[in-house]
Write a protein that binds this DNA or RNA. Structure first.
Lengths: 339, 339
DNA sequence: CACTGATTTGCATACGTATGCAGACAATCA
DNA sequence: TGATTGTCTGCATACGTATGCAAATCAGTG
């Protein structure tokens, strides 16, 4: 059924139907209500394709995963974020399209295809480690784009909804600083050097305020995966037996891998090794010991980030803007209870 | 740039451009190649909105999650499947839209909205426990729909790409039947009674062939979550200490929860308790002990299922069709090595 | 060269909506 | 009453593509 047929059925013009269903102020409230009521009753809905052709709006937002990063089933934080974002956008009448590049096909990336064909109104991306070409593509296409969670060095024209990772590092440093008998260690991975550096700086500063220093040699690396972190910690068991260690891990996935390895190797947590992760993914409390972590307020960030994107799409806002959220230290079972 | 402008630029008509880019046989190969080359060179692409308006095709497939089930970050198998499906569809030039209902808004479900506005060409759904109203909606909308993985009782007009869960159960039964000193136990959850019943029947049959019976009292339930399985197994520790037990779990998520609980409670695996899961999610080998499991050949099923959907969408096939895949028993560290 | 058939081209239109514009109608005021 | 404003309506058109149809071109044959 087209709007024209539907209009004839109600004895009004197609224009009036269109205006009523789009909430135009040109049609009086009672008539608007009537038309909407009838539409629901008869199951009529405006054709999205035609609507899109006229308005250049699709009612769809793309969620962009970077190929450098893991997928949702390898990185639980992505699934966690995706879940919240999806819920939030749907509640605001946007549908969600996944954009996940895994290398180019025919020299035309998925992002490129979607952007060029305008299949979305805007883009949300989690990490800011877009490749330069991707960032450039988004920028010159003029698509509204909000980056959640982490910042990318030197990229203009992008909007951020951040968690203050440096402050997170500071919180962990401030905590571990109270245990001078534990050697501090920072365990990160290669994928996000900018953010790791921020986190490490905060950690260092937090420790320093208690007179504790983070030795350069105690900045360790593994890959962004449970098993890599597991392997790392297994390989370190002699070191851990030699002296107590207080580990800040880049995120919960890594922290969880470390905790599991320590458990399997019979190293006491938190008696011998303390661990703090970051993100507070749901998985944090699946397993024992429950992970102490820096809670990233996803539940607050996502609505704000989505709101930012909607403002940009619907033209309520322009120019750059950035919001920032503070992580919160949550002590569970991988840290010693401070007296 | 529109196709008309682009056509003028090349000195041909808009029709020819349209035909060339859509691969019509009406335009000779050399000209087709030339036009395509130019299009790529100038970055021209046909407008998807207009195209959709004419053809009623969107180039998008919806992946439908049921609200009864967990989300991707709670159920790793969903993320695993999603990952494969997304990759497969993108490789075939379809984009992917997530359809995740969490209760209705305004009495209009997300699925309803998407179907009514025809934002997708077809639907893939993982589990077949669609609510009746959802199944009906899909059916009467005439959307091609393929259900992966599991079957739903008594639903016509749906196409299935299944893993043979009953055979999976049989494999586990046939294996555990060789260990008469282990009491068999089946651990399932309430969400998918049809499939659980099939699996249990296979398990029972497999055991019976070795003269072992599964007692009705040894059919246990927990929720579909890691922590619920963990809690269940923790609560059973006295039983496990009393006699050896061979557990078939409905899936790996549950099996993993059990394994972790046993580890934390100091119960020997597989010496005291053997565990077989199902799915073979990547998480299976993240943690120790590596889980013995019934490998579901996602890597084979997904391409076939997507192919089925594409056939339906592109009109190469109609009527119902169903394909089925055999799971495979993978022995790792939660089962006793048969001599 | 005339004719036939096959191949290729462009014209014209339709898809279903949003919206500028002009006109209809009601309300207000002098 | 007539003029003026404000509110509402419908007509007509444009968005950019796909495709039926007729026309044009070409190759092959007698």
């Amino acid at each position: 059924m087209t709007s024209k047929e539907f209009a004839r059925l109600l004895g009004v013009s197609q224009s009036t139907v269109s205006r009523a269903l789009n909430g135009s102020h040109l049609v009086p409230d009672d008539k608007k209500a009537f038309i909407r009521h009838k539409a629901r009753e008869l199951g009529f809905e405006l054709n999205r394709q035609a609507q899109s052709l006229k308005t250049n709006r699709t009612g769809t937002v793309g969620i962009l995963f970077q190929k450098h990063f893991k997928s949702m089933n390898e990185n639980p934080m992505l699934a966690h974020l995706y879940d919240h974002i999806q819920r939030e956008l749907i509640a605001n009448a946007y549908d969600v399209m996944t954009i996940y590049d895994r290398g180019d096909r025919d020299g035309l990336s998925v992002l490129e295809r979607i952007v060029r064909r305008r299949k979305v109104d805007g883009i949300i991306t989690f990490r800011s480690a877009l490749s330069d070409s991707e960032a450039q593509l988004i920028q010159q296409s003029g698509f509204p784009c909000v980056s959640l969670l982490n910042v990318r060095r030197a990229s203009a024209d992008m909007h951020y909804c951040l968690s203050d990772i440096e402050h997170g590092g500071w919180l962990a440093g401030d905590f571990f600083g109270r245990f001078p008998d534990y050697v501090p260690m920072y365990l990160t991975m290669g994928e996000e050097p900018d953010n790791a550096e921020l986190q490490c700086r905060g950690f260092r500063r937090g420790l320093a305020e208690h007179g504790v220093t983070l030795a350069d040699g105690e900045i360790r690396r593994c890959d962004l995966s449970f098993s890599s972190a597991y392997a790392f910690a297994s390989g370190m068991k002699e070191t851990f037996r030699r002296h107590r260690t207080a580990i800040l891990a880049y995120n919960d996935l890594i922290a969880r891998g470390v905790a599991e390895a320590l458990k399997d190797n019979g190293i006491a947590v938190p008696g011998t090794v303390q661990i703090i992760g970051m993100d507070d993914i749901p998985m944090s409390v699946w397993m024992r010991p429950h992970l102490s972590t820096l809670h990233v307020p996803v539940e607050e960030m996502v609505p704000v980030g989505c709101r930012m994107l909607r403002d940009l799409i619907e033209g309520r806002k322009d120019g750059e803007y950035t919001t920032s959220f503070q992580p919160r230290l949550v002590l569970r079972d991988t840290t010693v209870n401070p007296e």
